[in-house]
């Protein structure tokens, strides 16, 4: 049985992701643009879970964006987002690209992986108080373990 290797973005694909991300999320006075909020290597955490076909398509798209000038990346994103103006079945291909682009960019950015205050800026403060729950079970936190983490 062949050993699978954990997939990672190449430098070109990483550049493509950041370019794509900045078109989708350019930032404003408060929220940073995609490339300042997300390290391209963070996409590596998603790659093993994608199907082979989706991963290949995504990596191809990112590689293409890594080689295109920014205005061309913008045109590509706009084309995909404008699928409603395109007749079927071509629209289906654009929808697929649109969903793929949004899926990767938005899930990385809005997860606020680097705690840059993205959640605070949009008022997202949902939490689950696990410590209170554990106290209710009579489980007390081990201070040494907490410090280690």
């Amino acid at each position: 049985m062949p050993q699978q290797t954990t997939p990672k973005l190449t430098a070109t694909q990483a550049r493509g992701l950041l370019r794509l991300g900045d078109v989708v999320i350019p930032g404003d006075g408060v929220l940073p643009p995609f490339s300042r909020a997300v390290a391209a290597t963070e996409a590596d955490r998603m790659l093993p879970y994608l199907s082979d076909a989706d991963r290949s398509s995504l990596l191809l798209l990112l590689a293409v964006c890594g080689r295109l000038p920014r205005p061309a990346v913008r045109a590509l994103v706009a084309l995909a987002a404008g699928w409603r103006r395109t007749p079927e079945p071509a629209a289906a291909g654009l929808r697929m690209a649109h969903i793929g682009i949004k899926g990767v960019v938005h899930s990385l950015y809005w997860s606020d992986l680097n705690r840059l205050g993205i959640h605070e800026a949009i008022g997202y403060d949902a939490q689950v108080d696990e410590a209170a729950y554990e106290r209710s079970l009579g489980i007390t936190a081990d201070p040494t373990t907490e410090e280690d983490q």
């Binding site: 999320i25 969903i99 809005w110 949009i122």
Partner: peptide, 26 residues
């Protein structure tokens, strides 16, 4: 849903999309 999912569902991209996301809690 959480911010990533809502961002996925919101139409468009760029500044207009971001302006909507800024209103997430509204």
């Amino acid at each position: 849903a959480g911010p990533s999912s809502i961002a996925m569902l919101m139409p468009g991209f760029g500044a207009a999309h971001l302006a909507l996301m800024r209103r997430y809690d509204h």
